[in-house]
Design a protein around this nucleic acid. Structure first.
Lengths: 160, 160
DNA sequence: GTATATAATAGTCAAAGATGGTCAATGGGA
DNA sequence: TCCCATTGACCATCTTTGACTATTATATAC
């Protein structure tokens, strides 16, 4: 007997034949297959993970949803996965910056975006003897704000 | 599925396309959408807060009203400074996201950049009882990478 | 005219409703 | 036996509602 998970996987992939991204209701889908809602999470985790070339987004509460996005593979397949593995559990600033530059050169991110990313991971943003999550977030966020404004200035200079 | 709250938000923003401030009757609007009047307050609180760049004024009693005013940056020569002060040493995700949305609405950052910023400060990216700076950076960076790829997908969708 | 009652608004807040997420225990087939 | 699959209890998040409260204008009483 075909596994329930396989059926759900096929069902979803069928839905994605046309569009590279779909949105669905977890509970609805679970009901359709007569299974526990968490089963859907299992399928997503095991068959639609990043290394399978998908990205999952979701939202809870009324009007909640689960969105599945299929990544383009026109470049090297699973490029994102490769990068994520490269980063692993630990990465230094230099390595990260190199990756950012690479993405920029490939025109996958704009110069502005690259700058934003660098600002978010800079020593300056992440140092500190942090303990509270909010405190850390504030630091990261401040740096990003500053960079966003620098970008603005640059745009203005270019535009004018 | 478009949420009631989202619909109300869009409705209000449509009304504000021309004018920087509008006045409305809470009960009337609630009736228009067939919802509880307090629903309007919810929308205002979650989508038209000061951090979102709006100011709400109101008056009760006969002839009462709710006025929504879009703040102008022209009145804020030091907008960046204002935001930095607002963030301070600690900021929660909700507030930060509101500010990001505000910057995006003002066209100071693109939608892609806003998404990047959100990903960098999300709970997901910053949780953990971190100790090593590199570990934390890896988490933040991973999230940003994922977001960058999502953006790529979205661009393709728009272009094609 | 002033005080008081009534009507017309809007605000607050906590509870209920609507979703989705996580994780550990259990099931079942190769 | 081992590993993938499945479930269910419990958690997190976002939305919607309703009861109760606060404020203001207007009508009424004196």
């Amino acid at each position: 007997m075909a596994q329930l998970s396989d059926n759900i996987e096929q069902f979803i992939k069928e839905l994605m034949r046309e569009d590279a991204h779909i949105e669905l209701r977890r509970n609805e889908l679970a009901h359709h297959f007569g299974c526990a809602p968490s089963q859907i999470n299992y399928v997503l985790a095991t068959r639609f993970s990043v290394d399978h070339g998908y990205i999952i987004e979701s939202r809870r509460g009324g009007g909640g949803y689960v969105r599945i996005v299929r990544m383009s593979t026109r470049d090297e397949p699973n490029f994102l996965d490769t990068l994520l593995n490269r980063v692993g559990n630990s990465v230094d600033e230099e390595t990260a910056n190199a990756i950012i530059s690479n993405l920029n050169e490939r025109k996958m991110i704009t110069g502005r975006e690259a700058a934003l990313m660098r600002s978010a991971i800079s020593r300056n943003a992440l140092a500190l003897p942090i303990s509270a999550k909010d405190v850390l977030r504030a630091a990261v966020f401040k740096n990003m704000l500053i960079q966003a404004f620098k970008n603005l200035e640059e745009d203005e200079r270019d535009d004018v």
